[in-house]
Nucleic acid binder design. Sequence first.
DNA 1: GCACTGAATGTTATAAAATATCAAGCAATC
DNA 2: GATTGCTTGATATTTTATAACATTCAGTGC
Lengths: 153, 153
Amino acid sequence: MLKHKHDHDACIETALEAAQKICEERETRFTPLRRRVLELVWTKHEPITAYEVLDMLSEGQKRVAPPTVYRALDFLIEEGFVHRIESLNSFVGCSDPAHKHQGHFMICTKCSNVTEMNERSLHDVIKKAAEENGYSYENSILEIAGICENCRN
Amino acid sequence: MLKHKHDHDACIETALEAAQKICEERETRFTPLRRRVLELVWTKHEPITAYEVLDMLSEGQKRVAPPTVYRALDFLIEEGFVHRIESLNSFVGCSDPAHKHQGHFMICTKCSNVTEMNERSLHDVIKKAAEENGYSYENSILEIAGICENCRN
DNA sequence: GCACTGAATGTTATAAAATATCAAGCAATC
DNA sequence: GATTGCTTGATATTTTATAACATTCAGTGC
């Protein structure tokens, strides 16, 4: 069942190519394993758990161990290709990998789809709120639960 | 080492009394176990994990099992006396238990202290952002990491 | 008082998520 | 081709959380 009308294969491919390019620029190593994990994260196109990645990664070969997946995910998060959704213990591909940032998300409680908001204004408001309360700002997690447009119709 | 200059015992006592009163109003049961768990959460006055609560609860008596703690925490969260900090898998006492709400937090990455922000304006901005992106708003998690005023001095 | 009911707690077992540690492989540099 | 450091493999364990069923307890009606 297609939730979004888009060419999903192309969408994955674009993400992989972008990651590849960024890693070349940064001289970090986009190894086959890391590439494969990023691909699996994008394949689901919804928050995916580390153990789901693990299962998919293990298909048709010897089962990989959790650290393999977690290390790959750590790298991808570090590079900004993947975000972690704290409230779901899950991971999603980043829609704007070129700029490192912490993601702000809306999570549909019906269909589980996640939308990343890259809104400068929202980020600024949050940062300002922190500073007004005496905190220096490092980063922030924002996860909004609600019902998406599709599911309301 | 005291981090805040306040009478911590009084602060715990206030929280317990408030909870008691609210439960009477709502006709929900503020049992000895639930009271004790809330007390332990407030005693630490920093995010506390379920298993820390479990250990403290077990002191000087037969060890309690995880469900005992999780159920009490579930109740306290449901009533709005405790918030869960997703990014830390931990729990903190709510500073405004009289009004049910989802908490917005600042977390000091040095001293681990947590400050709850009950700012209407921030809440409104977040809700508006969600709606502008086509989501109905249910609730939201905001956890800002930074360094608190104390730790910067 | 006593049986009934439903909520709360106890108990046992297990699932789910994540990490520590050490070993082996591999890729770049000298 | 030896060295170095990063990456991956492998084993074990820790941390976090829940499922399922049994027992206890408080309130209600009789």
